[in-house]
Design a protein around this nucleic acid. Sequence first.
DNA 1: TATGCTCACTTGTCAGACAAGCGGTCAAGC
DNA 2: GCTTGACCGCTTGTCTGACAAGTGAGCATA
Lengths: 242, 242
Amino acid sequence: MAKPRAAFDLRAEERAPLSVLVSRQLRHAIVSGKVSIGTELPSEKELTRELGVGRSTVREALRILQAQGLLSGGDTVSTRRPRVSTEEVLSLAAAQAMENVVRLAQVPLADLVELRVLLEGAAVEAAARTKPALADARDAIAAMEAAGADVEAFRAADLRFHRALADAGGNAAFPLVMGALRAAISAHLGEALHRAPQPRRAITKLTREHTAILDAITAGHGTRARTLITRHIRGFYRERAR
Amino acid sequence: MAKPRAAFDLRAEERAPLSVLVSRQLRHAIVSGKVSIGTELPSEKELTRELGVGRSTVREALRILQAQGLLSGGDTVSTRRPRVSTEEVLSLAAAQAMENVVRLAQVPLADLVELRVLLEGAAVEAAARTKPALADARDAIAAMEAAGADVEAFRAADLRFHRALADAGGNAAFPLVMGALRAAISAHLGEALHRAPQPRRAITKLTREHTAILDAITAGHGTRARTLITRHIRGFYRERAR
DNA sequence: TATGCTCACTTGTCAGACAAGCGGTCAAGC
DNA sequence: GCTTGACCGCTTGTCTGACAAGTGAGCATA
């Protein structure tokens, strides 16, 4: 296709652009842990030399990895070297991917909400059994009580609370899926809470529900916690969604 | 940063490479449905003209969207125009993103399996209530019975069966998450079935379990179906893993 | 010692070049 | 008339060279 094609021994079978091959190679090095999290990559020119391909190719490969979330751009503007992402960034990328699918496939909001109910229900039930530390959830509730009518502050605290619950389930996969779900859901829902006629009242009600859920967990009442959170989530969406 | 910067009225606040801006713009056009699925994009040169940016920039933007799964390369080799992806392709990309996270975050296999149990359990329970058409699942079982000792054929049929169950749950979000999970799980597990000492026997056993699950669903025994599939999945992974 | 200047290096972007493959046109041959 | 083969343009993939702008390190000066 182009000139040198470097020292790659690509099987003629596998017809993929060089840039894709390069990105795969780098991806493999990353996910296999060969280069650790937070590492700065060499400059583009160095990569050009090391990989034996042109800079455009290297750049395209980097862009692919960046889009997949495996690399995240540095903070400075001009000298920013891409770094191997933290899982934080990566799960953000996964969330966005999920959101893309959900939007393109036009998954109904109700289905997303039911999935959320299922996951969070399972998480709180597990938490009631294992009784992990729930300081974060407690803090979040305190923040909600302090929020008053500040919708934005409440939203942030609500996020923290539900994330804490997902973590408390003890299953590392839950928070990841929940994160993806959250992005997809809020894409549907937008800023529904802002449209509430009486934000202060709504916030108070939701906060009370949160407290009840947390109490049920700490008391070890798994089934009750599940019922409460199911009602909590369903109720919220029933009210807000259209 | 570069020369023309085109007719974009980007706020100086938002410091992002032009290629990223372009990709965002295109992404928006896609997910908002402005360009429909399967549409072929204009050639790179045309995009260059339309967007007022250089070809490298356009190419990087396209690569980003491709990595996100929003665009998929055509089938021909040289004249392949990127097309707006089907959800099929997109959910594949989401699956890969999920896999990245899972591997980098080192989510334990057991957690993934439990999540799968939860989802499929809920799906079959729902299916037992709603009794949707399950012809696909039945076909898949027939294919398994015909597979004999052909591990690859069995795997394909197994995939179809479980996908059919996920679909049967009636929740459009399930199959998407399941797809993502599957990629992550098989990344962990590799080709475990191939290592089974007696593939034929293992296949027969699994097929029997599948049949029992399907029967329970069609009989409307939701709880039983859930129990069976839970055992089925857990058992499989307990045997295969490690 | 603190401050400011200069310079090398980096990324972002563009323009131009070429190889290879695909599709259509058009003429020659049956 | 229909098939076949050469040819030409367009497209993608890749490389190279160029330049603007920003960053940071080293160095000179107050």
